[in-house]
Simulated assay, not measured.
Amino acid sequence: MGILVAISLSHLLNDLMQSVIPSVYPILKQEFTLSFGQVGLIQLAFQLTASILQPMVGIYTDKHPKPFSLPLGMGFTFIGLVSLSLASTYWMLLVAVSLVGIGSSIFHPEASRIARLSSGGRHGLAQSLFQVGGNFGSAIGPLLAAVIVISRGQIGVAWFSLVALVAMMLLTWVGVWYRDHMRKPKAAVSMALPNLPRPVVLRSLSILAGLMFSKFFYMAAFTSYYTFYLMERFAVTVQQSQLLLFVFLAAVAVGTISGGPIGDRVGRKFVLWFSILGALPFTLLLPFMDLSWTIAFSIIIGLILSSAFPAIVVYAQELVPGKIGLVSGIFFGLSFGLGGIGAAFLGELADWTSITFVYRLCAFLPMIGFLIYFLPNTHRLRP
């Protein structure tokens, strides 16, 4: 449990630093005279570097575990944040966020593996605790950015590099445990699904990828453009919009903790039905609500949608046993990649139309959840 808490706290620090990037978009947009499309490209550069490398890291570390790769990855994040605070051109911004993305791509596959190793067989609970750390970090980041960066400007990002140093020290301790753990005899705890045909596995993984598309394209509308939506539609201030983004992301953090443990008890498929399709009525109504109801619906949507990802990751790990790093890398990479593509696409769409239209279009994305019907029921399949 101590290691699980430590890796969850590391995830909090890692994602806190990552969330600073979209939080400073209003400042960068004004200072560098950027379009929404250019803002989207910054997010794309960050999230593509955070996604493309993850499966490769996972494949390599499945065969050759590297306990101290975690503090090394955090070093890239440190350099990226310092570079972002000093960037004077648009291209420097792209390089800086790419370095932060590389740090993330090294962190997530191995950190997810350590969460599973320290789970004691309760993989859903461990994955939820690991991910909720990241969610809380993502929620706290915009709040700290509103306090530190908004008042100090771009140079204020440098303060968050101190968080990277703290995370490097914590992850070095975790790396020592991981190294010692690999030297001990392993007690096998199998959670693989029995005798599923290869076509069923491939179909199931494809459906899970579709659910990821639904979830993270919709989430991109919030993480990258919710502040702009609130300022354009309701004329709130930058500080107020950052606070409301924090409220949404805090709801995401709270919702994440439920998906894994419930999946351990009643099956991942039940969680997916609720967490994808359960959000549909609220996403459809959100674009037509006033400010108070927008806040309320955003909290409900965050709570419901966020329970999906722990269930998706553990479901995929059970479908492909023995490839924890690869599966974690693919699905964490998908989460970043789809979010980045979504941010870029939605930014361009907002330039052509409006932010309000983007939210009305994205409201239909949870309908992809009807594909869950074709997934095998993992709870009933267990011996």
Score class of each variant (00 low, 15 high):
152 R>G: 00
24 V>E: 01
217 F>Q: 01
67 P>Y: 07
251 A>S: 15
333 G>W: 05
34 L>I: 03
296 A>V: 14
146 A>L: 05
22 P>G: 09
302 G>I: 07
332 F>C: 10
96 A>I: 05
40 G>C: 04
178 Y>N: 14
290 D>S: 15
295 I>L: 07
306 S>T: 05
103 G>P: 06
197 P>K: 11
262 I>G: 11
195 N>Y: 10
208 L>Q: 05
87 A>R: 07
155 I>A: 05
60 Y>S: 02
14 N>Y: 07
188 A>Q: 13
239 Q>S: 15
162 L>Y: 01
126 A>T: 04
315 Y>N: 03
71 P>G: 09
240 Q>W: 10
103 G>V: 12
167 A>D: 15
203 R>T: 12
283 T>D: 04
9 L>M: 14
269 K>P: 08
311 A>D: 08
83 S>G: 03
191 M>S: 14
246 F>R: 02
155 I>T: 11
55 P>T: 07
380 R>D: 09
87 A>I: 08
241 S>C: 13
352 W>R: 13
273 W>C: 06
308 A>N: 10
283 T>G: 09
290 D>C: 06
184 K>Y: 00
82 V>R: 00
307 S>N: 08
179 R>M: 12
49 T>W: 03
87 A>P: 08
247 V>P: 07
26 P>F: 09
193 L>Q: 02
359 Y>W: 13
328 S>G: 12
18 Q>S: 15
176 V>C: 01
187 A>L: 11
370 F>L: 14
224 S>I: 01
367 M>F: 14
96 A>K: 05
246 F>C: 10
156 G>Y: 06
377 N>A: 11
71 P>M: 04
238 V>L: 15
233 R>D: 06
339 G>I: 03
78 F>C: 06
227 T>L: 12
265 R>H: 13
7 I>E: 02
312 I>S: 00
317 Q>N: 13
326 L>T: 13
83 S>D: 01
251 A>V: 05
7 I>L: 03
383 P>V: 08
137 G>T: 10
47 Q>D: 07
66 K>G: 04
179 R>W: 08
378 T>D: 15
34 L>H: 04
279 A>S: 15
366 P>Q: 07
1 M>E: 14
101 G>P: 05
236 V>M: 12
168 M>E: 04
63 K>I: 01
111 A>C: 09
42 I>N: 01
342 G>K: 05
285 L>P: 02
173 W>P: 00
13 L>E: 08
59 I>V: 13
22 P>K: 05
227 T>G: 04
39 V>E: 01
293 W>M: 11
210 G>E: 08
204 S>A: 11
5 V>L: 14
